[in-house]
Amino acid sequence: MNPERSRATRSPPAEKPHAAGWGHLLPWTAALAFYFLGADFLGLGTNALIMVLFALSLDLVLGYAGIITMGHAAFFGFGAYAAGLCAIHVTNDPVTGLLIATAAAGILGFVTGTLILHTKGVTLMMLTLAIGALVAEVANHLRDYTGGDDGLHGIRMAPLLGAFRFDLWGHTAYLYTLAVLLAWFALAWRIMRSPFGRSLDGIRQNVRRMRAIGTPVWWRMVAVYSLGAAMAGTAGALSAQTTRAVGLTALELLASGTVLMVLILGGTRRLYGAFAGAVVYVVVQDFAAQVDPFRWMFVIGALLMAVVLFLENGLMGIIDFAAARARSLWREQTPR
């Protein structure tokens, strides 16, 4: 069998309800528990949640639909600038800003998606790179609005829902981010099990087959690309609102590479893979990036290579393996 095929490209599994229940409970409980236990690191935790959302958005586009994009950071950055500019010039209500940024990034995804998704393979990859570079150039050039290299500062958010101030310790920011993540996650979970989601899974595996059953392949791809862009835009907006700053680095190739690494490290097409990858990312980044940014690049690069060579199903693959082992051991030890 072709080794390319033998990579785990399972369809969304038909889990038993109770197993799925436990699987869901664990990560969210952990995220909530962190709020109480990790009070000194809530900023870090918020970053991790934002990274989860960002990687999740890439999972829809790349993991499920198989659109290989090297420019996904464009949407994150676009959402971040949209939210930042909205807070400074229009309204500093966080939820309004979030919705505007999400819509803006989604529209950018729709426009660029309709343009480039006719192509495939290397050409498509180059086009995503070119669009990423174009968006970064625009942001760099419009320094009157974006602050250019200095970044966008002076973002002040109004209290969330008019009641909860963004406090110095990041309590509000953390719970706000967690709530938004949960909403997007539930949506993504539902969508990826829908006929639409299953058709994306089919498009990744075999475009010809999908054409042969009458699937409007191009429209489906544009749809998921826009959806992923909107989601990445939300992540960018959360980042702008909770850190009160946006930098050009959000748009750089390194950012696209980082989110790819997080997703691949965690495991694609799992949705929860993004969680595993992002947690590792934030912890490692906290250690490495404090030293200097280049050491950080080394870590990302080495991790990317290691995952490709040794860990094709990502961390979730290991978790699956461990869970299967544990179950079989349990069965051996419990008498019938």
Binding site: L254, G257, M261, G301, A302, M305, V308
Partner: peptide, 14 residues
């Protein structure tokens, strides 16, 4: 793409 991208990062760091 991932592997060569990662290699680039490693080279830059080195």
């Amino acid at each position: 793409a991932l592997m060569t991208f990662g290699f680039t990062f490693v080279v830059i760091a080195a």
